[in-house]
């Protein structure tokens, strides 16, 4: 079996749209609200979650036949927590400014439902390589939504992108003001709702039959 067979590519692609962890599985909403005020933390958060999901999926999948089912949740938590602490330590050592921006949210990756969700639903029953890809795919799916939401919130809430002013000064002189609502977590939820709406109207098969 080749490393990037059709089935494996599907594992990477599906979470981007048809099985997106945030908009379809509705996991990881909490951090999607918290870190999406600015683009940079959202992007780094997305990448960190991707790394943690991928590697904990890999480790759990390697161990899946020796994990006693009765303590599997504990084992999963230990693996996830270890990964998160390692990521946190590495960020602190090599990208200190970003690690400061993310502050407590890195630690909170441990409680991100996507990771536990993928471990339970996929890694416990599948081979290491597909599990790893599944982790990468879901991590990207999560990051894409985070970045999309953060893009809208930073643009309309602060008039900047990645901290650079993008809206021309003339616009502000003409009476435009930044929308303070965008900075509030509520707007993240509404934006995620709008994304789900758009996504479902493009993919008819996602609409619940009722």
């Amino acid at each position: 079996m080749s490393l990037f067979s059709k089935k494996n590519i599907e594992l990477l692609k599906k979470p981007l749209n048809l099985d997106n962890p945030v908009t379809i599985q509705v996991l990881g909403i909490c951090s999607a609200l918290a870190v999406t005020v600015k683009l940079k933390p959202a992007l780094v958060m997305g990448l960190s979650v991707m790394v943690v999901t991928a590697f904990s999926n890999l480790v759990i999948s390697l161990m899946r036949n020796s994990i006693p089912p009765r303590i599997r949740i504990i084992v999963q938590l230990v693996v996830v927590a270890t990964m998160v602490i390692l990521v946190d330590q590495l960020l602190r050592a090599f990208v200190y400014d970003v690690s400061k921006q993310l502050s407590v949210y890195v630690g909170l990756i441990i409680t991100n439902c996507i990771i536990m969700g993928r471990l339970e639903a996929y890694a416990m029953a599948n081979k290491p390589w597909p599990s790893f890809l599944d982790g990468i795919g879901n991590g990207i799916g999560y990051a894409v939504i985070l970045v999309a939401v953060a893009f809208m919130r930073e643009l309309f809430g602060s008039g900047t992108l990645f901290g650079y002013k993008v809206l021309p000064k003339a616009l502000f002189d003409a009476g435009y003001i930044n929308n303070g609502m965008m900075i509030m977590p509520t707007m993240a939820l509404i934006l995620v709702g709008v994304i789900i709406w758009i996504q479902k109207s493009y993919n008819k098969e996602l609409i619940d039959k009722d």
């Binding site: 994990i67 006693p68 009765r70 303590i71 084992v75 230990v78 270890t82 330590q89």
Partner: peptide
């Protein structure tokens, strides 16, 4: 088995993390 598994896992993780730190 469950006890042995937990003990080994915890010790390994502790070693790994303190080494990294």
């Amino acid at each position: 088995y469950i006890y042995t598994f937990s003990v080994i896992m915890v010790v390994l993780v502790a070693l790994l993390l303190s080494f990294a730190a």
